[in-house]
Amino acid sequence: MTAIDTIPNLDRKKPLRPSQVVGRIALYATLIVLALFVLMPLAVIILNSVRFNDDILRESFIGWPTRLTLENWGVAWGEACINASCTGVKPYFWASILMVVPATVISTAIGLINGFALTKWKMPFAGFIFVAITIGVFLPPQVVLLPWAIALGWLGLSKSLVGLSLVHIIQGTCFTTLFCRNYLINLPDDLIKAARIDGAGFFRTFWKIVVPLSPPIIIVTIIWQFTFIWNEFLFAITFSSSDFRPITAALMSLNANDTGVSEYGFGSAAVLIAAIPPLVIYFLGGRYFVRGLTQGAVK
């Protein structure tokens, strides 16, 4: 036996004690049960979207499909009746896209500019302004319904896509300012001072220094805003009309015919169609979302 053979193997894992094994089994079992509990409604909706409605009514809303069909998806997209219009969810889907994308981009940009101004530009009363902006984070949305209705009426934007987008931009700026401020406060002040010494102004410093260092928080705010605005219902139902209605509000009026029979099949497909964009956004940027949160997004 050589001297090397007598050196203990530090990489070798020690065997777990029985209590540790039991603890890990209990932990994983609990996590699996919770995951199944959370995913069960989604699984039921997915299965019902490919079941015939007759089978659902005859058997049960919760059940394994005995026959499969994709007809529900076609009906939900282009044939189902919403109020008096039998165009499916397609026009409401694109209406939501036209509302959510600009509202998300603009509120994120404003939040990033606010965060930079409140942390690195040494403006007077920055603390007071920050508190005033973030008060909107804690106000229930029901509180602002009447003021927004009056404001949109004055602006001539009631029941319009532009008006609803404006509501989400202003409301969302409260959140994006909070996120961006808490992220940018950790950037080195020396970078900003060096840029100012070189003669860079506010927007040049913002574009050349802040933006290249802020992809994590930008992704966080985009995912947050897109998901929140897309899934929001109260503003959508209050400030929309039959001419323009987001998909979340349209789903409440979804109907196939006047027989009074519940159409669970294409209703489930319509719900899944409405859920696709937020899921795609999260799956594309989910890892960056977690990284951005851990770098100061929600301190």
Rank of each mutant, 00 (worst) to 15 (best):
L57Y: 02
F116E: 12
K120P: 11
N83F: 00
A84W: 03
G156N: 01
V101R: 13
V137K: 09
F125E: 14
T104H: 08
R58V: 03
A151P: 01
V100H: 05
I82T: 04
I62D: 00
P147G: 06
N83Q: 13
L57D: 05
V50E: 08
G63Q: 10
T104N: 09
D54A: 14
P147V: 04
T66M: 01
L112Y: 08
E79A: 12
P141W: 09
L166R: 01
V75R: 15
A132E: 09
V144T: 13
S85F: 01
A149Y: 14
I110M: 11
I110V: 15
A84T: 05
L161H: 01
V162D: 00
G88F: 12
D54K: 15
K122I: 10
I56K: 09
W121F: 15
G136D: 05
M123G: 12
S165L: 00
I97Q: 06
A126Q: 13
E71V: 01
V100L: 12
R51G: 11
P91Y: 05
L152P: 04
A84Q: 04
T87Y: 03
G115E: 14
G127Y: 10
P124F: 12
W73I: 03
D55F: 03
K120D: 09
N72M: 03
L146C: 00
H168C: 00
K120A: 07
V50L: 07
F130L: 14
A132S: 14
A109T: 14
V144G: 01
M99T: 07
W154Q: 03
L139I: 14
A132T: 13
L146R: 01
T108N: 10
A95G: 15
A132Y: 09
F61A: 13
L98C: 06
T87I: 08
S85P: 11
I129N: 11
E79H: 12
A95M: 11
K120H: 15
G63W: 07
G78M: 06
I97Y: 11
L152Q: 10
I170F: 00
V89G: 06
I56M: 04
S85E: 08
N72S: 08
H168R: 08
G136K: 11
I56R: 08
W148D: 02
F130R: 12
S160L: 05
K159I: 00
P91I: 03
F130I: 14
I150R: 06
A95I: 07
T134S: 13
A76M: 06
N72A: 08
A109W: 10
I169Y: 02
I129L: 15
F61Q: 07
A117Y: 15
L164M: 03
K90F: 07
T108Q: 05
C81E: 02
I82L: 07
V144M: 09
I97F: 11
E71N: 04
I170M: 01
N53I: 01
T134Y: 10
I82F: 01
V100I: 13
V50P: 02
A103G: 12
A95L: 04
I133T: 15
W154C: 00
S85C: 02
L68T: 07
G88E: 09
A109L: 13
V143E: 01
V100R: 04
S49P: 05
K120L: 08
L166A: 06
